Amino acid sequence: MTENFHCREINRKCTEFSAEKFVDVLLTEGEKATCDETSESFNEHCVIPTFYDEILCKKGQNCFHQNRFSFCLTSLLGLTALGTRPALKILILTKQQCTPIKAYRRYLATILYMLELYEYEFKPGSKSWSSLEKVRKMHNFASNLGHRKLDYRINQLEMALTQFGFIGFALVRGRFIGIHEVSEEELKGFIHLWRAVGYVLGIEDRFNICRESVKETKEICEELMRRVFIPGLQQPGDDFYNVAKVVVEGFRGMIPGLHLDNMLHYTHMIMESNEDVANCAKDHLSPLDTIEQLKLKILVNVMWAMQYRIFRFIMNNFLLLIIWLWINFPIVAYWKFGITHHSHVRI
């Protein structure tokens, strides 16, 4: 009996999940494994994954609809944090964000592709599946170009970190993003959707940060913040600020008033669970002027107000109006880039 107990205990410890070990493998082996046409997972994963659960996926889509504004903010801040990663040089090479208008078109298209994942059935032939196929082609093209020019391919690590960019802050800093009253089952559905998305985009199961367990996924996100994103924002590469400024200028074609330093300060505040604007200064960040501090205080207070359902309802529906304008009458882009066909983005 004692021997059997010890055997069971050893087996339990061997199978016990460790976010630290998961991230160890991701950072060491994920960087060596490609995620393009040279990858077995990329070529074989263009089908519905065997683990896919339609009911759970719909719960995840509904979770997004109930918190549309907050999840879009998550993506905006996540894309900012991703700007510190080495894959940035591929975007520079492909000239997809070397000017504000190109950055605007690229990121608006990214947002529209993302929104289709939440609106339509996740199956071959649907609009969401068509969006994923287009994203796969774009990633593969960029990876091949990067290989020819820089001897660098998009890898599993960068794809996994991109998953974090779209979901990470919402999962582990939900209160700071305005996410409230979300059940464990809804979060599980949201994670399940992104697990399936990652699979179809070619992420190997061992590198997919979206796990079956909400707890494990959150632990991975916390570990990635600590070991990747916080150090990356504290010591960004030489290209980061130049490219990030262009990216923000592109976003200003959608959201007027955005400011790079403001976004970086708020991203730091989220990662450090700090709600005090007065104590958000960082040695490596430019100090905020009075106007930008005021904007940051307004954002913090908006996130505080999101705890109330009526305010979430207002902000979610306000975003629907904004999205409609982005697609049909991009008035901000007209003002910034001129009334041309470049201001209109179709996917």
Results as ranks from 00 to 15, higher is better:
4 N>I: 12
4 N>M: 14
6 H>R: 12
6 H>T: 09
7 C>T: 08
8 R>D: 05
9 E>M: 10
11 N>Y: 04
12 R>Y: 11
12 R>V: 00
12 R>L: 07
12 R>W: 03
12 R>G: 03
13 K>T: 02
14 C>P: 00
14 C>Y: 06
14 C>G: 07
15 T>P: 00
15 T>K: 08
15 T>H: 04
16 E>H: 00
16 E>Y: 01
16 E>G: 00
17 F>I: 02
19 A>W: 05
20 E>N: 04
20 E>T: 07
21 K>D: 11
22 F>R: 04
24 D>Q: 00
24 D>C: 02
24 D>P: 01
24 D>K: 03
25 V>F: 02
25 V>D: 09
26 L>S: 03
28 T>N: 11
28 T>S: 14
29 E>R: 12
30 G>K: 02
31 E>G: 14
31 E>R: 15
32 K>Y: 00
32 K>I: 03
32 K>L: 13
34 T>A: 14
34 T>M: 06
35 C>S: 14
38 T>I: 01
38 T>C: 12
38 T>D: 14
38 T>Y: 06
39 S>C: 13
40 E>G: 07
44 E>H: 08
46 C>W: 06
48 I>D: 08
48 I>Q: 06
48 I>R: 10
48 I>F: 05
48 I>M: 13
48 I>H: 01
48 I>Y: 01
49 P>E: 08
49 P>W: 07
50 T>Y: 03
51 F>C: 10
51 F>N: 12
52 Y>E: 07
52 Y>R: 03
53 D>P: 03
54 E>P: 04
54 E>D: 13
55 I>R: 11
55 I>P: 01
56 L>E: 13
56 L>A: 05
57 C>V: 02
57 C>S: 11
58 K>Q: 13
58 K>E: 14
59 K>Q: 13
60 G>I: 09
61 Q>R: 09
61 Q>A: 05
62 N>T: 13
62 N>Q: 14
62 N>H: 14
62 N>R: 11
63 C>F: 06
63 C>L: 08
63 C>T: 10
63 C>S: 04
64 F>H: 06
64 F>A: 05
65 H>S: 06
66 Q>S: 13
67 N>P: 06
68 R>S: 15
68 R>Y: 15
69 F>C: 11
69 F>T: 09
69 F>I: 08
70 S>R: 10
70 S>M: 10
70 S>W: 02
71 F>Y: 15
71 F>V: 15
72 C>G: 03
72 C>I: 15
73 L>F: 12
73 L>C: 11
74 T>F: 01
